[in-house]
Simulated scan of single mutants.
Amino acid sequence: MTVLGVDACPSGWITGVSDDTELYVAQYDDVETLWAEHDDAERVLIDVPIGLPETGRRACDEAARELLGDRRSCVFYVPPRRVLDAGSYEAANERHRELTGHGLSIQTYNIIPVIEEVGTFLDEHEAARERVIECHPELCFAAFAGGDPVPDSKHTETGRKTRRELLREELPGSEQAYEDAMERFYRKDVGRDDVLDALALTAAAREESLLSVPEGRDHRIERGTIAYPEPR
């Protein structure tokens, strides 16, 4: 069984690939190229919002933030669909405030291109829709830690060390895959935290079944749902 964990990175998409024989990390310029190489994958977990609201905020983002407690800021609120084509941050921020009652963070504005790329891809590839599932790496790490969010940021040495330790327990071969990626990719193209996030999603993708937020939603067929592993 082949499963993927996919995260956006400065050079495109960083992907953990796990099958019956090996685990490795690969980089792709776009989702179309990634899918062309792995369209036989049984499950693809991706850290990109799938399914945008018309107004207000997504219930799955609210629920994910609640699960993460003090680490809630790791989950960005997804902008309504009509914000995507605003054309500038200033226009997007104004439209976002009209539709949600809140301002738009610059971090969220900067991920609009990857949201659009994945949305267009899924609209055009019916076969991918039940296999490409939204996930969040911090929910995965929290599950691997017994349900408690990792307190230290993934951008710190302590935070990376903790996440690597959790991955060693959950994903055999992850340490070597991480080290190989660090040697093969420039940091300007692929960050350390990008690789850790992709591997966390890969570990979750290997699970027999996944939970969802909001509770009771089916992440395989319903957009606006975030999947995550059962806490250990």
Score class of each variant (00 low, 15 high):
residue 54 E to F: 01
residue 41 A to V: 00
residue 58 R to Y: 05
residue 44 V to F: 01
residue 43 R to C: 05
residue 57 R to T: 10
residue 46 I to S: 05
residue 56 G to W: 04
residue 60 C to Q: 01
residue 61 D to H: 06
residue 61 D to L: 04
residue 39 D to T: 10
residue 62 E to R: 14
residue 66 E to G: 11
residue 49 P to W: 01
residue 69 G to A: 15
residue 39 D to M: 12
residue 37 E to W: 06
residue 43 R to M: 12
residue 65 R to E: 09
residue 49 P to S: 06
residue 49 P to E: 03
residue 45 L to I: 04
residue 51 G to W: 06
residue 68 L to D: 08
residue 62 E to L: 13
residue 49 P to Q: 00
residue 64 A to E: 02
residue 51 G to D: 01
residue 55 T to P: 09
residue 37 E to C: 14
residue 44 V to A: 05
residue 37 E to I: 02
residue 62 E to F: 05
residue 68 L to F: 12
residue 54 E to Y: 07
residue 71 R to T: 06
residue 58 R to K: 14
residue 62 E to Y: 00
residue 67 L to T: 13
residue 70 D to F: 11
residue 71 R to D: 01
residue 67 L to A: 15
residue 58 R to W: 00
residue 61 D to V: 03
residue 50 I to L: 12
residue 54 E to C: 00
residue 49 P to M: 08
residue 47 D to S: 11
residue 66 E to N: 14
residue 59 A to H: 13
residue 44 V to K: 07
residue 71 R to Y: 02
residue 56 G to L: 03
residue 51 G to T: 06
residue 65 R to D: 10
residue 49 P to L: 03
residue 45 L to Y: 02
residue 52 L to M: 02
residue 47 D to G: 10
residue 70 D to T: 15
residue 70 D to R: 15
residue 63 A to Y: 06
residue 44 V to Q: 02
residue 46 I to D: 00
residue 61 D to I: 04
residue 64 A to R: 07
residue 38 H to R: 07
residue 70 D to W: 10
residue 48 V to D: 00
residue 47 D to V: 11
residue 71 R to K: 13
residue 59 A to G: 11
residue 65 R to N: 10
residue 68 L to P: 11
residue 40 D to P: 10
residue 39 D to N: 14
residue 64 A to Q: 04
residue 71 R to G: 02
residue 47 D to A: 13
residue 70 D to G: 15
residue 48 V to C: 12
residue 48 V to Q: 03
residue 38 H to Y: 08
residue 39 D to L: 04
residue 69 G to C: 12
residue 43 R to V: 06
residue 66 E to S: 15
residue 56 G to S: 11
residue 68 L to T: 08
residue 57 R to D: 10
residue 66 E to R: 15
residue 64 A to W: 03
residue 42 E to Q: 11
